[in-house]
């Protein structure tokens, strides 16, 4: 076991990939000389050289497009887009091209590309630097979307990402980079589409992903302590493919479902989950399905206002108390 931060565990995955296959290369803004905007790639340029660790201009479309073309020609690119907000500048390449080339060519072209990017708010970066678009991306057929919430998950899911023959969006939450966890030294992988039951409970199912999983865990502890009610917390790990089975099984057991995510409520990914729950477990529900998400506002800069929009453990506890009369 090694006690690793999420930053270190992802770096471990990158080094492994680079060492195991010369077709693997890293490309992105400031990943080399600068050591990475979030320091994930620190030291890799020195270790692997400029052929494999490639600093790019600030040109998100051509960064991603170069990754797509290189993948289509048989290489194994790992592309870093500095944050998910900047990925909007490359949406044409991601959605019109990466996600569709296999289908449009009827399987002639494969795009085995891992797109690493940084998601989430909470660091007072204001409206343009605090967004969470992984739910949008999970709506696109042809993409796979990974949202690790712990260092161990990040490494296991990264290893699985590198085995895919399809484009993978690997969304790392900015506030999780410093979080530590014991990570096994022996090789392990975590499959896509297998949610993790982080906490067992019999009364309420809380479903979440990425940075919000920690908040849900904290809320569950409060509910347990204050009300003697046990929540089951499910970390989805991947939004596409999605593990409906684990969700439905849990809701059938608890009869109550809460879906928590950091993005806006309107059009949030949680709406899909709620729809599936009511369809598959309608007769088991003892109350409405609760969705907790950010307010429908651009993220504000001021700390108090920012905390007012992102779901907190207090908000989760209050919503559960109000709706489930505990």
């Amino acid at each position: 076991m090694s006690n690793l931060t999420l930053r270190e565990s992802i770096k471990t995955g990158l080094i492994e990939a680079l060492e195991s296959d010369t077709k693997v290369f890293l490309m992105g803004e400031d990943i080399g000389d600068y050591n990475g905007a979030y320091a994930v790639t620190a030291g890799l340029l020195k270790k692997f050289g400029p052929k494999r660790i490639i600093d790019t201009p600030i040109s998100e479309s051509v960064i991603l497009g170069t990754g797509i073309g290189a993948a289509a020609a048989g290489l194994r690119p790992i592309v870093e887009i500095m944050t998910i907000n900047f990925l909007l500048l490359a949406f044409d390449q991601l959605i019109n091209h990466a996600a569709k080339l296999r289908y449009m060519s009827n399987g002639q072209i494969e795009v085995p590309l891992v797109l690493r990017t940084v998601t989430g708010g909470g660091a007072q970066l204001g409206a343009t630097h605090s967004q969470s678009f992984e739910g949008w991306l999970a709506a696109v057929p042809g993409l796979k979307v990974v949202c690790p919430s712990t260092p161990k998950d990040a490494l296991g899911l990264f290893r699985t990402s590198m085995k895919q023959k399809d484009p993978v969006v690997f969304a790392e939450h900015a506030l999780l980079y410093g979080v530590k966890e014991e990570v096994p030294d022996e090789f392990f992988e975590i499959p896509f589409g297998k949610a993790n039951i982080k906490r067992s409970g019999d009364s309420i199912t809380i479903i979440s992903y990425s940075g919000m999983v920690r908040t849900c865990m904290a809320a569950s502890e409060i509910i347990s302590k204050d009300f003697n009610v046990e929540c089951e917390v499910i970390d989805l790990r991947t939004l596409r493919p999605l593990d409906f089975e684990t969700i439905i099984k849990s809701v059938k057991k608890t009869g109550r479902a809460v879906v928590v995510e950091e993005t806006w409520k309107t059009g949030g990914f949680g709406a899909n989950i709620s729809e599936s729950i009511q369809l598959e477990a309608f007769d088991y529900l003892d109350g409405p399905i609760i969705r907790i998400a950010s307010e429908d506002v651009p993220a504000p800069y001021n700390r108090k206002l920012e905390l007012g929009t992102i779901p907190s453990e207090e908000k989760i506890v209050a919503a559960i108390k109000q709706n489930f009369s505990i």
Binding site: T66, I68, G69, A70, A73, P77
Partner: peptide, 11 residues
């Protein structure tokens, strides 16, 4: 055009 860059890069 960006994809063309990727094909050229791979070559």
């Amino acid at each position: 055009l960006p994809i063309a860059c990727g094909l050229g890069f791979a070559s």
